[in-house]
Protein backbone atom coordinates (compact mmCIF):
# COMPACT_ATOMS: atom_id res chain seq x y z
CA UNK A 1 0.00 0.00 0.00
CA UNK A 2 1.36 3.35 -1.02
CA UNK A 3 -0.03 5.25 1.95
CA UNK A 4 1.67 3.05 4.52
CA UNK A 5 5.14 4.41 5.02
CA UNK A 6 7.58 3.11 7.55
CA UNK A 7 7.83 6.40 9.41
CA UNK A 8 7.04 6.94 13.04
CA UNK A 9 3.71 8.49 13.83
CA UNK A 10 1.60 8.77 16.94
CA UNK A 11 -1.44 7.74 14.94
CA UNK A 12 0.20 4.44 14.06
CA UNK A 13 1.27 3.78 17.66
CA UNK A 14 -2.32 4.43 18.64
CA UNK A 15 -3.56 1.92 16.03
CA UNK A 16 -1.20 -0.76 17.29
CA UNK A 17 -2.32 -0.03 20.83
CA UNK A 18 -5.99 -0.47 19.94
CA UNK A 19 -5.33 -3.62 17.94
CA UNK A 20 -3.28 -5.06 20.80
CA UNK A 21 -6.07 -4.43 23.30
CA UNK A 22 -8.64 -5.99 20.94
CA UNK A 23 -6.32 -8.95 20.33
CA UNK A 24 -5.98 -9.43 24.06
CA UNK A 25 -9.78 -9.47 24.44
CA UNK A 26 -10.04 -12.01 21.62
CA UNK A 27 -7.43 -14.32 23.09
CA UNK A 28 -8.15 -13.91 26.78
CA UNK A 29 -10.99 -16.48 27.07
CA UNK A 30 -8.70 -19.06 25.45
CA UNK A 31 -5.84 -18.32 27.86
CA UNK A 32 -8.18 -18.43 30.84
CA UNK A 33 -9.61 -21.73 29.56
CA UNK A 34 -6.17 -23.34 29.19
CA UNK A 35 -5.11 -22.10 32.64
CA UNK A 36 -8.41 -23.43 33.99
CA UNK A 37 -7.35 -26.96 33.11
CA UNK A 38 -4.66 -26.73 35.80
CA UNK A 39 -6.80 -25.20 38.55
CA UNK A 40 -9.32 -26.44 41.08
CA UNK A 41 -13.01 -25.52 40.50
CA UNK A 42 -12.92 -22.66 42.95
CA UNK A 43 -9.90 -21.04 41.31
CA UNK A 44 -11.44 -21.36 37.83
CA UNK A 45 -14.52 -19.41 38.84
CA UNK A 46 -12.59 -16.81 40.85
CA UNK A 47 -10.36 -16.24 37.85
CA UNK A 48 -6.92 -17.25 39.09
CA UNK A 49 -4.53 -16.39 36.28
CA UNK A 50 -1.46 -18.36 37.27
CA UNK A 51 -1.08 -22.05 36.37
CA UNK A 52 -1.92 -24.53 39.10
CA UNK A 53 -1.04 -28.20 39.58
CA UNK A 54 -4.47 -29.77 39.11
CA UNK A 55 -4.15 -30.76 35.46
CA UNK A 56 -3.86 -34.50 36.08
CA UNK A 57 -6.74 -34.38 38.56
CA UNK A 58 -8.93 -32.50 36.04
CA UNK A 59 -7.88 -34.77 33.19
CA UNK A 60 -8.73 -37.76 35.38
CA UNK A 61 -12.19 -36.34 36.08
CA UNK A 62 -12.83 -35.45 32.43
CA UNK A 63 -11.81 -38.88 31.16
CA UNK A 64 -13.25 -40.76 34.14
CA UNK A 65 -16.71 -39.79 35.39
CA UNK A 66 -17.28 -37.35 32.53
CA UNK A 67 -16.50 -39.81 29.71
CA UNK A 68 -14.42 -37.41 27.61
CA UNK A 69 -13.00 -40.19 25.45
CA UNK A 70 -16.38 -41.76 24.65
CA UNK A 71 -18.03 -38.39 23.87
CA UNK A 72 -14.96 -37.32 21.91
CA UNK A 73 -15.13 -40.52 19.90
CA UNK A 74 -18.86 -40.01 19.25
CA UNK A 75 -18.26 -36.47 18.01
CA UNK A 76 -15.35 -37.57 15.86
CA UNK A 77 -17.18 -40.57 14.40
CA UNK A 78 -20.25 -38.53 13.52
CA UNK A 79 -18.21 -35.71 11.98
CA UNK A 80 -15.89 -38.00 9.99
CA UNK A 81 -18.67 -40.22 8.62
CA UNK A 82 -20.67 -37.12 7.65
CA UNK A 83 -17.65 -35.69 5.84
CA UNK A 84 -16.89 -38.92 3.95
CA UNK A 85 -20.50 -39.56 2.92
CA UNK A 86 -21.29 -35.89 2.45
CA UNK A 87 -18.32 -35.00 0.30
CA UNK A 88 -19.04 -38.02 -1.92
CA UNK A 89 -22.75 -37.33 -2.32
CA UNK A 90 -22.41 -33.56 -2.70
CA UNK A 91 -19.42 -33.65 -5.04
CA UNK A 92 -21.25 -36.13 -7.26
CA UNK A 93 -24.32 -33.93 -7.30
CA UNK A 94 -22.32 -30.76 -7.99
CA UNK A 95 -20.59 -32.51 -10.88
CA UNK A 96 -23.87 -33.89 -12.19
CA UNK A 97 -25.56 -30.49 -12.08
CA UNK A 98 -22.64 -28.71 -13.69
CA UNK A 99 -21.49 -31.09 -16.40
CA UNK A 100 -24.81 -32.61 -17.53
CA UNK A 101 -27.29 -29.87 -18.27
CA UNK A 102 -31.01 -30.51 -18.30
CA UNK A 103 -33.94 -28.28 -17.53
CA UNK A 104 -35.31 -30.65 -14.89
CA UNK A 105 -32.04 -30.79 -13.00
CA UNK A 106 -31.58 -27.01 -13.21
CA UNK A 107 -35.02 -26.63 -11.66
CA UNK A 108 -34.11 -29.11 -8.94
CA UNK A 109 -30.92 -27.19 -8.23
CA UNK A 110 -33.05 -24.06 -7.80
CA UNK A 111 -35.25 -25.90 -5.30
CA UNK A 112 -32.12 -26.99 -3.39
CA UNK A 113 -30.95 -23.38 -3.19
CA UNK A 114 -34.35 -22.25 -2.01
CA UNK A 115 -34.07 -24.49 1.06
CA UNK A 116 -30.93 -22.62 2.11
CA UNK A 117 -33.11 -19.91 3.56
CA UNK A 118 -35.07 -22.38 5.70
CA UNK A 119 -34.38 -21.63 9.36
CA UNK A 120 -33.13 -24.68 11.22
CA UNK A 121 -35.85 -24.54 13.85
CA UNK A 122 -38.53 -24.93 11.16
CA UNK A 123 -36.92 -28.02 9.63
CA UNK A 124 -36.09 -29.89 12.83
CA UNK A 125 -39.64 -30.14 14.14
CA UNK A 126 -41.03 -32.32 11.33
CA UNK A 127 -37.60 -33.94 10.89
CA UNK A 128 -37.66 -35.11 14.47
CA UNK A 129 -40.96 -36.90 13.88
CA UNK A 130 -39.52 -38.57 10.77
CA UNK A 131 -36.37 -39.73 12.55
CA UNK A 132 -38.41 -41.04 15.40
CA UNK A 133 -40.73 -42.87 12.96
CA UNK A 134 -37.63 -44.48 11.40
CA UNK A 135 -36.72 -45.71 14.88
CA UNK A 136 -33.20 -44.27 14.72
CA UNK A 137 -33.48 -41.71 17.53
CA UNK A 138 -30.45 -41.81 19.80
CA UNK A 139 -28.19 -43.37 17.16
CA UNK A 140 -25.29 -41.89 15.20
CA UNK A 141 -27.39 -42.11 12.03
CA UNK A 142 -29.97 -39.71 13.41
CA UNK A 143 -27.30 -37.02 13.33
CA UNK A 144 -25.40 -38.13 10.23
CA UNK A 145 -28.11 -38.86 7.64
CA UNK A 146 -30.12 -35.61 7.70
CA UNK A 147 -26.94 -33.54 7.32
CA UNK A 148 -25.11 -35.57 4.69
CA UNK A 149 -26.72 -33.82 1.74
CA UNK A 150 -26.02 -30.12 1.95
CA UNK A 151 -27.45 -27.70 -0.59
CA UNK A 152 -24.78 -25.19 0.33
CA UNK A 153 -21.91 -27.63 -0.23
CA UNK A 154 -23.39 -28.64 -3.60
CA UNK A 155 -23.66 -24.97 -4.55
CA UNK A 156 -20.11 -24.31 -3.34
CA UNK A 157 -18.62 -27.31 -5.19
CA UNK A 158 -20.56 -26.53 -8.33
CA UNK A 159 -18.90 -23.10 -8.39
CA UNK A 160 -15.60 -24.97 -8.23
CA UNK A 161 -16.51 -27.45 -10.96
CA UNK A 162 -17.35 -24.55 -13.26
CA UNK A 163 -13.63 -23.86 -13.43
CA UNK A 164 -12.99 -27.42 -14.63
CA UNK A 165 -13.19 -27.35 -18.45
CA UNK A 166 -15.95 -29.36 -20.04
CA UNK A 167 -13.58 -30.11 -22.94
CA UNK A 168 -11.48 -32.35 -20.71
CA UNK A 169 -14.57 -34.38 -19.83
CA UNK A 170 -15.48 -34.64 -23.52
CA UNK A 171 -11.95 -35.62 -24.53
CA UNK A 172 -11.85 -38.37 -21.90
CA UNK A 173 -15.25 -39.60 -23.08
CA UNK A 174 -13.98 -39.82 -26.67
CA UNK A 175 -11.05 -41.84 -25.34
CA UNK A 176 -13.59 -44.32 -24.00
CA UNK A 177 -13.45 -43.55 -20.28
CA UNK A 178 -16.64 -44.30 -18.30
CA UNK A 179 -18.47 -41.40 -16.63
CA UNK A 180 -17.66 -42.57 -13.12
CA UNK A 181 -14.01 -42.94 -14.02
CA UNK A 182 -13.87 -39.45 -15.53
CA UNK A 183 -15.35 -38.12 -12.32
CA UNK A 184 -13.16 -39.98 -9.83
CA UNK A 185 -9.88 -39.96 -11.72
CA UNK A 186 -9.91 -36.72 -13.68
CA UNK A 187 -12.43 -34.22 -12.27
CA UNK A 188 -12.07 -34.89 -8.53
CA UNK A 189 -8.25 -34.82 -8.35
CA UNK A 190 -8.21 -31.38 -9.94
CA UNK A 191 -10.57 -30.04 -7.28
CA UNK A 192 -8.54 -30.68 -4.16
CA UNK A 193 -8.84 -27.12 -2.85
CA UNK A 194 -12.63 -27.01 -3.18
CA UNK A 195 -13.03 -30.48 -1.70
CA UNK A 196 -10.80 -29.52 1.24
CA UNK A 197 -12.92 -26.43 1.98
CA UNK A 198 -16.13 -28.45 1.70
CA UNK A 199 -14.75 -31.15 4.00
CA UNK A 200 -13.69 -28.57 6.60
CA UNK A 201 -17.08 -26.89 6.44
CA UNK A 202 -18.94 -30.17 6.92
CA UNK A 203 -16.59 -31.34 9.67
CA UNK A 204 -16.91 -28.15 11.70
CA UNK A 205 -20.68 -27.92 11.24
CA UNK A 206 -21.15 -31.45 12.60
CA UNK A 207 -18.42 -31.22 15.24
CA UNK A 208 -20.03 -28.09 16.70
CA UNK A 209 -23.65 -29.09 16.10
CA UNK A 210 -25.82 -28.51 19.15
CA UNK A 211 -29.57 -28.04 18.64
CA UNK A 212 -30.22 -31.18 16.58
CA UNK A 213 -28.18 -33.55 18.81
CA UNK A 214 -29.82 -31.91 21.83
CA UNK A 215 -33.14 -33.20 20.50
CA UNK A 216 -32.17 -36.57 19.06
CA UNK A 217 -29.57 -37.84 21.54
CA UNK A 218 -31.08 -39.22 24.68
CA UNK A 219 -28.42 -41.37 26.30
CA UNK A 220 -24.73 -41.16 27.22
CA UNK A 221 -23.68 -43.78 24.72
CA UNK A 222 -24.26 -41.47 21.74
CA UNK A 223 -23.67 -38.11 23.42
CA UNK A 224 -21.38 -35.62 21.65
CA UNK A 225 -18.95 -33.10 23.16
CA UNK A 226 -21.20 -30.00 22.91
CA UNK A 227 -23.95 -31.88 24.76
CA UNK A 228 -21.47 -33.20 27.31
CA UNK A 229 -20.25 -29.72 28.20
CA UNK A 230 -23.78 -28.37 28.24
CA UNK A 231 -24.97 -30.94 30.77
CA UNK A 232 -21.77 -30.44 32.80
CA UNK A 233 -22.28 -26.71 33.16
CA UNK A 234 -25.94 -27.23 34.08
CA UNK A 235 -25.18 -29.80 36.77
CA UNK A 236 -25.86 -29.04 40.40
CA UNK A 237 -22.15 -29.11 41.24
CA UNK A 238 -20.08 -27.98 38.30
CA UNK A 239 -16.70 -29.64 37.86
CA UNK A 240 -15.05 -26.54 36.36
CA UNK A 241 -11.54 -27.91 35.91
CA UNK A 242 -12.78 -31.02 34.10
CA UNK A 243 -15.12 -28.84 32.04
CA UNK A 244 -12.17 -26.74 30.88
CA UNK A 245 -10.40 -29.92 29.78
CA UNK A 246 -13.43 -30.99 27.75
CA UNK A 247 -13.88 -27.56 26.15
CA UNK A 248 -10.19 -27.35 25.27
CA UNK A 249 -10.22 -30.82 23.73
CA UNK A 250 -13.33 -29.88 21.73
CA UNK A 251 -11.59 -26.78 20.35
CA UNK A 252 -8.30 -28.48 19.50
CA UNK A 253 -9.21 -30.21 16.21
CA UNK A 254 -10.78 -27.02 14.87
CA UNK A 255 -7.80 -24.95 15.97
CA UNK A 256 -5.32 -27.36 14.38
CA UNK A 257 -7.21 -27.43 11.08
CA UNK A 258 -7.47 -23.64 11.22
CA UNK A 259 -3.76 -23.08 11.76
CA UNK A 260 -2.75 -25.71 9.22
CA UNK A 261 -5.15 -24.75 6.44
CA UNK A 262 -6.14 -21.13 7.06
CA UNK A 263 -7.16 -20.40 3.48
CA UNK A 264 -9.38 -23.45 3.04
CA UNK A 265 -10.67 -23.02 6.56
CA UNK A 266 -11.90 -19.49 5.99
CA UNK A 267 -13.40 -20.45 2.63
CA UNK A 268 -15.21 -23.29 4.40
CA UNK A 269 -16.40 -21.21 7.34
CA UNK A 270 -17.75 -18.47 5.14
CA UNK A 271 -20.47 -20.95 4.26
CA UNK A 272 -21.32 -22.01 7.77
CA UNK A 273 -24.31 -20.60 9.58
CA UNK A 274 -24.75 -18.55 12.67
Amino acid sequence: MSQVRARFSYARVFLYLILSVVSFLCVFPFIWMVLGMTLNPNEVVKGTLIPGDQFLVNWGKATGPYNLLLFGFNSLFIAVVTVVLGVTVNAMAAYGFDKFHSRAREWLFGVFLLTLIMPQIAVILPLFRLISAFGILDTYWAIILPFTMSAFVIFFLRQNFQMFPKEIVEAARVDGAGELRIFTQIALPSMKAGIASAAILMFITQWNSYLWPLITILSDKTKTLPLAMFSMVNAYTVEYGGLMVIITVSLLPVLIVFLAMQKHFVAGLVGSIK
Binding site: G96, F97, R105, M149
Partner: peptide, 8 residues
Protein backbone atom coordinates in the same frame (compact mmCIF):
# COMPACT_ATOMS: atom_id res chain seq x y z
CA UNK B 1 -26.53 -36.68 -15.05
CA UNK B 2 -29.30 -38.31 -13.01
CA UNK B 3 -26.87 -40.97 -11.84
CA UNK B 4 -24.59 -38.33 -10.30
CA UNK B 5 -27.32 -36.31 -8.62
CA UNK B 6 -29.41 -39.31 -7.50
CA UNK B 7 -27.91 -39.89 -3.99
CA UNK B 8 -28.28 -36.21 -3.12
Amino acid sequence: GWFFVAPA
